[in-house]
Write a protein that binds this DNA or RNA. Structure first.
Lengths: 258, 258
DNA sequence: CAGTGGTCTAGACCACGTC
DNA sequence: ACGTGGTCTAGACCACTGC
């Protein structure tokens, strides 16, 4: 019964469909239809029902877990995930990537690159370190227009070599993760909308009071903070995104909301 | 050799570690050490090397794929994923959820709820529909302070019943997905930083010129637009997030950047 | 205790890419 | 033809839950 109906249906499409993904679709139907409110059938039940081995049924369940539909509880069963927490994601891309997407020419200007002798307390607190701290100030341009101003502090003990790198043509992210062997393990970040103070506005060739995104980010490797960065991003440089299920880099649609 | 060394190491930790996840860790080490630049060993090779069945080795590979480390190409092999596209995500949560996180009291005020006779062209274009369009204007409060102003247009043909719902105590997202059976299938959204025009500022009890986040979002079910919403969010109501590997709702860390 | 999910085995056949 | 990943089988033992 199952095979014929689903199989015929699926065969009208070009792509060959595996049994496990047919089972997955079947289960999603059930979830959508508000069945399974007391839990999904067990893996063994589904295996028998569709006359497949348990590993095949289990694969369907696993994908439901990865896609965020259900959660498994050992010894109890598999249950529909209720969390409608749901949110819309905005991604802050590196400037060069955003430039590529917008098809504009990307350039960077290093305004300052030096070791700080007496770093302010709020920085040493954030980096949990109060000796050699490196300061980098860069201005990023799209088609010669300044769009992002970056103030970055780095822990000199972890990546002091940054002082001798060319930071106009190299990504700091890539240098840290690859050359300095500092895998990124945690991120804290925060964004507010602000109006430009005079000094910042001057860099952007705008009058004070223009809107900007203000982003702070603290990034860790193995629980050690490595770099703290502040971004001022033109308010009219929009964050724009589309999320659809076919889009492989999309966050899970179940996490989004109307 | 592998067993003893890794096993002893892992045994110092409390959690029991499966063979496949040991293999996974081993492969991650290799990736981090810049081996595998010409591709990972094949699943069969790894299975032999660790004296396990191919399914076990394959499970380790699968998790690397899910975690974004590698990609598999049928007939060719498994390769380290180069895309350093990487970005930081900000999530726009529904107001009630954000209030819960901040531990403040959340209330909503419906300022307007009606069918529009002659909707503006930019709205009908977005919703791809020019007849009965429903307008909802709401103001969301945290501890009696207005924090988010929402202007929403909905397609009356798909969810006309919204007109008779209590929108001060119900989530529009939940109504649409559950009661009106409109599963969310696609999202387009865009955010800029703006300064408040006079009318908006009045709602927030601020002077014009204060910074706000301005968000537009168009949401679809099955390629049909369902609702278009504009949000004005106080600029000082920060978007703040922490991402770490242990955090189950986090986006993949490989998608983040220094 | 029975039933659940978590892991693993030792095979098998298929689709795809390379030579 | 050969090696790769993609799928699947028919078992097995384990850890956990609930009765």
């Amino acid at each position: 019964m199952f095979y014929t109906s689903i199989y015929n249906f699926k065969n009208t499409m070009k792509k060959r469909v595996s049994i496990s993904s047919q089972i997955k679709e079947h289960l999603i139907q059930g979830i959508r239809s508000h069945l399974f409110t007391n839990g999904l059938p067990s893996e063994n039940q589904i295996a028998k029902q569709f006359n497949v081995s348990r590993m095949t049924a289990r694969k369907a369940f696993s994908e439901l877990v990865y896609d965020g539909w259900v959660e498994r509880i050992q010894g109890k069963g598999t249950f529909v995930k209720t969390r409608e927490l749901s949110q819309g994601y905005f991604k802050i891309q590196p400037s060069w990537k955003q430039a590529k997407d917008l098809n504009v020419i990307y350039t960077t200007n290093v305004l300052e690159l030096k070791t700080i002798s007496n770093p302010p307390g709020r920085i040493t607190d954030k980096l949990n370190y109060n000796q050699q701290i490196i300061l980098v100030r860069r201005l990023h341009f799209f088609d010669q227009i300044p769009v992002r101003y970056e103030i970055r502090y780095l822990r000199g003990d972890l990546c002091g070599g940054i002082l001798w790198e060319n930071l106009e043509n190299n990504s700091i992210h890539e240098l840290l993760t690859q050359k300095y062997n500092l895998p990124l393990s945690r991120v804290w970040q925060r964004m507010t909308a602000e109006t430009m103070p005079k000094k910042i506005a001057a860099l952007f060739n705008e009058a004070a009071g223009h809107p900007v995104f203000y982003v702070e980010r603290l990034t860790y490797t193995n629980k050690n903070p490595v770099t703290y960065v502040q971004y001022y991003i033109r308010g009219d440089l929009a964050f724009e995104d589309t999320f659809s299920p076919d889009d492989e880099n999309s966050p899970n649609l179940l996490n989004l909301t109307y």
